[in-house]
């Protein structure tokens, strides 16, 4: 199996976020970035499939120079090659524009399977993988919690998460795009050997021209939606915050839970 994995780099969920001076997005200076959570699970699933069936995993990311770090991590974990869509024109796209560019890169080669995450932890459109599938003309499934490739590799048995604790079991023809949900497996850690080997693995940087794309059709220019500002939500009727050191605060809370809320 030749498996492509789309990986996005996103701000670390632990990071303290600040809104940029111009208000249009968060301030990315000094911000820690990581591989999007569900994409890490997608990569692990791809590595397992390739290890079982023989084949290779190619990691693909669209983003500025910094995303090389995410790709290098993917290579250290076991991907054979990386593709970096780094041209300025690719950036700032919605799910449709980003999916179009990723599909163009994937469509240049022959893959049996494409895995993406289910949702990006920053903009969270939950649709980029489905757009990739649409361009390739392949079936897709979102929120995938299990993939079993059938003997011969023509079909996969897929577990898809539904609402309220139910899973749907599907049989889907390959090639396909599966949008992997966090929790499908337990991702491995990179070994020192893997990190050393990653340095010699190829990283391609295809241009718009090489992918047959126009700058007007991708990135922010090719998008139907535009984020004009971000802000911290108004806290509204928020919690009563109990101050004091942990001991004091705990005591006050218990008193309130007993006397005010009457739940203890």
């Amino acid at each position: 199996m030749r498996v492509a994995v789309c990986m996005k780099q996103v701000p670390d969920t632990e990071a303290r976020l600040r809104v940029h001076r111009d208000g249009s997005w968060i301030d990315e200076e000094d911000l820690a970035f990581v591989i999007n959570e569900s994409d890490e699970y997608a990569l692990e699933e791809a590595l397992r499939i390739a290890e079982k069936s023989g084949g290779e995993v190619v990691v693909i990311s669209l983003g500025p120079e910094r995303v090389k770090e995410a790709l290098r991590k993917g290579l250290a974990l076991g991907a054979a090659r990386a593709i970096h869509l780094k041209d300025e024109a690719f950036l700032g796209g919605d799910a449709l524009a980003t999916g179009k560019a990723l599909a163009a890169a994937i469509g240049k080669e022959e893959f049996d399977l494409v895995l993406t995450g289910s949702q990006s932890d920053d903009v969270g459109y939950g649709g980029t993988g489905s757009v990739v599938a649409g361009h390739l003309g392949w079936p897709h499934a979102w929120l995938v919690m299990g993939i079993e490739i059938e003997e011969g590799g023509a079909h996969a048995k897929v577990t898809r998460e539904m609402e309220s604790g139910l899973n749907e079991i599907l049989r889907i023809a390959l090639p396909a795009v599966f949008e992997v949900q966090a929790g499908i497996n337990h991702p491995r850690y990179a070994s020192l050997k893997g990190i050393m080997k990653a340095k010699r693995k190829p990283m391609a940087e295809p241009t718009l021209e090489e992918l047959g794309l126009n700058p007007e059709g991708v990135g922010s220019a090719g998008s139907r939606i535009e984020v004009v500002s971000v802000a911290f939500p108004e806290s509204g009727a928020g919690a009563e915050i109990i101050e004091g050191d942990p001991e004091e605060a705990a005591q006050v809370l218990v008193d309130k839970l007993r006397k005010e809320a009457k739940v203890l």
Binding site: G127, T128, S130, A133, G134
Partner: peptide
């Protein structure tokens, strides 16, 4: 914005050449 609509909305938008504004 349900698990079902997210599963197909982006695909529908792509095929139609429509825009997508989720959530």
């Amino acid at each position: 914005h349900t698990y079902q609509s997210v599963d197909y909305m982006a695909r529908l938008a792509q095929g139609l050449g429509a825009g997508l504004l989720p959530e």
